[in-house]
Design a protein around this nucleic acid. Sequence first.
DNA 1: AAGTCTTACATACATACGGTATGTATGTAA
DNA 2: TTACATACATACCGTATGTATGTAAGACTT
Lengths: 195, 195
Amino acid sequence: MRRSQQDRSRGTKAALTAAARALFAARGYDAVPADEIVRAAGVTRGALYHHYADKKALFRDVVVGLEAEITAEIRTAMTSAPDLPTGIAAALTAFLDACARPEVRQVSLLDAPRVLGWSDWRAIEAEFGLALLIEAFTLATDAGLVRPQPVGVLSRLILSALTEAALLIADADDPAQIRAQAEQALGTWIAGLIG
Amino acid sequence: MRRSQQDRSRGTKAALTAAARALFAARGYDAVPADEIVRAAGVTRGALYHHYADKKALFRDVVVGLEAEITAEIRTAMTSAPDLPTGIAAALTAFLDACARPEVRQVSLLDAPRVLGWSDWRAIEAEFGLALLIEAFTLATDAGLVRPQPVGVLSRLILSALTEAALLIADADDPAQIRAQAEQALGTWIAGLIG
DNA sequence: AAGTCTTACATACATACGGTATGTATGTAA
DNA sequence: TTACATACATACCGTATGTATGTAAGACTT
């Protein structure tokens, strides 16, 4: 059986991103040498630098994949709920769960801003997580749940608070308690937006 | 004139942190080789590794110094106001101004979490910025401006939103507009805490 | 189907950085 | 003033990234 060049490329890129994702998640971006990634992926440095300009480009691919994945999860949680308010609540839960995963925490929250640069990272976030948040916001506004207002900046502030909450929970000795406090604080905030 | 050993140490450490701070601020932690730092400080690698365990330890010293500096500025802004509400407003302004400085943005907000590790960075933040925020919160609670509540988690969420706002403003094409939106959003949040 | 071109990879190498080991000068105390 | 500790300088080593070069495997052309 003859594999096409496209298939070959897809296969090795997938192997590289999968290996890189696991290693980056476990030890962080620059604690993982490219050698180890290619070894885990069953290829050599040649393959890596053929498909990616540099190590950072591979990392970016990992981040985008991860972001796409968790955004899909959250979107599913939100849209599969019977009504919008419970959907939003479910989305919040799904978000906190996603951020609690070590790979998300390490790769997407800790490494990404610095490795990719803040503005590039922000662009990725805007494409995925922020887009979802603004979507939810718009739905809520249309449903009359919150009063109309410029949502761009507000969404980013909320997203950062959500992210911070997720990190706090992940790092806490008593996650349940911290999560309760965080959800209460965030709930109060959201409630204040209704009017 | 004979300089004591303490004076020598203080001098070279100060030269190292000053040089490192400027270089880290301009180009980021790992874009700056230690060689360049020691050259700028007028010493050699020997001096660096005599006083600091590694490059990261020097960076940490820079972060702590920076944090102490801006916290002092903000505290001054807050306490030198005639009353608490205007003091808090002044503190907010001072905070946003501080975060807008490139060195704070790069060193303290972008590099620090990853280079030092999130929990160590969090500890530094807790000692300076967060402590100030909680202090303000407690004052406001005592003055009856906000209702009593657990402030630890809430303060962190607010701090992260404040920080995000500062980054957004620093990165915006139209800083004034973004700043206005951010202050409005934050103001609404704070207002919701009263009662 | 033979030859040519292009893509996909492997290997070898150049370079740069961080950290250490060793040597030397300067201050300090018995 | 002798014995020691502290503060630095220099030379070196290991390891990482990225590049240059070579090779094999599809993919067109005729």
